[in-house]
Design a protein around this nucleic acid. Structure first.
Length: 483
RNA sequence: GGUCCUAUAGACUAACGGUUAGGUCACCAGCCUUUCACGCUGGCAGUAGGGGUUCAAAUCCCCUUAGGAUCACCA
């Protein structure tokens, strides 16, 4: 049987990190097995419609490098891929279940249901639809039911859950799961507005779309028995289930907005590389070897298998994400990073920076930053003359005789034709040795004069990239400003 | 509360009955050094508890404890 998996988000605004991981695992699984990965939009809740949510979702997924073989955008043989466009289907299948006795009509108002739950709560029994006392096909009788429907009274269709039977299914990650029918609620399948609930729609669609593996978050585990019952009621074969462990906050609760960023777009904005982000998220709950941390998308695909997915939830640790991003800054192609950073430079009013120059600066600083966008801030002096000089640094390294010491060195610099790291370094070394000083005695003053800051990249590399003219100008400007 | 799921250091994880319980982040120390980093070396720190099964248990079973998910005409 060929592998067909789906990612089925509801368009509620943005792509959640947990959603990205679910999508990613589906994608990796499909690609690993040469199967198909389908995107299906689950928008059966009309009250939760959000403008542009679908576009947003797709753009975040695309950013991460996840493309679908079938989706609302690219189409496919099993469309439409938006549930609200499959409306008639669900109604038809819902009716089929009523006819074969697996489901039934019910007429209770939400007030009546609330009252029922309240009674149950008071009695200390778990809230669950009681089909023996509520207003439905069983209590009202067939004739009355037909009359009410003909009259146009609002009704819902509920799943008739067997009251004592064990419902069992096997999960690729959890193993065998058994739940007794007495603990499963008579789930509403078709709402009074005629729309299906998630449970009906997802089963009908997964079957019709020939989905082989349902890979989704663990929060769906408790409702899976209902889905199993539905497959049975239709006489369909169940797909293979795989319930992924949850992504957690620091306090181990389900990863939520309240405790930091959860939208993929936020991380993108914060400056994380998609390569680092995908790498990091992939390793949350799954690990192929444990002796290695860095994987690109193809390597993830090659190594992925569901059997190695963990059972327990994983805390989303930003600290490690940052480390991973720093790893990528060091190794991603210079061209790629330069193209990425180029458009950002204008935001800092660095307008006349050439691509070649920026590439050199990135190369010089990539060992000491976590985010690419730190460059214009951390290395601002590579793009403008120092606007100020760190007071503390100045106090520490500019003594009354420093000017005298620096003057001849600057003259030596001026005589250099081939302005390279080696040349300036050699000249400096020669000078300090001749004068019985240490390299650090002059490097700090040079750093101060050229950059204005106490921290930065190697001093001679910095000057090489700055160029002779610029470096000398800065040195002389500073010397002239000192008495 | 009912049901279900889970349990290796602060965090992510390796081990698929036999290892001095391994790796990564973070943290600490040292080295490197031209500041800050990177890098390198070392260190701190773990099988939740209790019973079984077995020659042998982190690993299999049971109980306890703890955490989580879920209990809507939301997905």
């Amino acid at each position: 049987m060929s592998v067909r998996v789906r990612f089925a988000p509801s368009p509620t605004g943005y792509l959640h990190v947990g959603g990205l991981r679910t999508a990613l695992y589906n994608y990796l699984f499909a690609k690993h097995h040469g199967g198909k990965c389908v995107l299906r939009i689950e928008d059966t809740d009309r009250t939760r419609f959000v403008e542009n949510a679908q576009e947003n979702l797709i753009s975040s997924l695309r950013w991460a490098g996840i493309e679908f073989d079938e989706s609302p955008e690219v189409g496919g043989d099993y469309g439409p891929y938006i549930q609200s466009e499959r409306f008639d289907l669900y109604k038809k299948y819902g009716k089929e279940l009523v006819e074969n006795g697996s489901a039934y009509y019910a007429f209770d108002t939400s007030e009546e249901l609330d009252a029922m739950r309240e009674r149950q709560q008071k009695a200390g029994i778990p809230p669950k639809y009681d089909r023996t006392v509520m207003r439905n096909e069983f209590t009202l009788g067939k004739e009355e039911t037909e009359r009410l429907i003909a009259e146009g009274v609002d009704y819902v269709v509920r799943l008739k859950v067997p009251t004592t039977e064990d419902i069992r299914f096997s999960d690729l990650i959890r193993g065998e799961v058994v739940v007794n029918g007495k603990d499963v609620d008579d789930q509403i399948l078709l709402k009074s507005d005629g729309f299906p609930t998630y449970h009906l729609a997802n089963v009908v669609d997964d079957h019709l779309m020939a989905i082989s593996h349902v890979i989704r978050g663990e929060e769906w585990l408790p409702s899976t028995p209902k889905h199993v019952l539905l497959y049975k009621a239709f006489g369909w074969e169940c797909p293979t289930f795989a319930h992924l462990p949850l992504l957690l906050n620091k306090d181990k609760t389900k990863l939520s907005k309240r405790q930091g960023s959860v939208a993929v777009e936020d991380f993108r904005e914060q400056g994380y590389f998609k390569e680092a982000f995908v790498n990091f998220v992939a390793l949350l709950g799954w690990n192929p070897t444990a002796d290695r941390e860095i994987f690109d998308m193809q390597e993830l695909i090659d190594n992925f298998n569901l059997e190695k997915v963990n059972k327990s939830g994983a805390v989303f640790d930003v600290q490690k994400l940052e480390w991973m991003n720093a790893q990528y800054v060091k190794t991603l192609p210079l061209d790629y990073m330069t193209d990425m950073l180029m458009p950002e430079m204008a935001k800092y009013d660095f307008n006349n920076v050439s691509k070649e120059y920026l590439a050199k600066v990135i190369d010089l600083f990539k060992e000491r930053i976590t985010f690419l966008k730190q460059i214009p801030v951390f290395a601002n002096y590579m793009f403008e003359k120092p606007t100020e000089y760190e007071e503390e640094y100045l106090q520490k390294h500019w003594k009354e005789n420093t000017k005298e010491i620096m003057l001849p060195l600057v003259e030596k610099f001026k005589a250099i034709d081939d302005w390279t790291h080696d040349a300036t370094y050699g000249a400096t070394k020669e000078y300090v040795e001749a004068n019985n000083m240490k390299l650090k005695d002059v490097i700090h003053p040079i750093r101060l004069m050229v950059t204005g800051k106490s921290v930065g990249a190697g001093m001679f590399e910095t000057m090489e990239i700055l160029g002779k003219k610029e470096s000398i100008e800065r040195l002389e400007f500073f010397l002239n400003s000192q008495k």
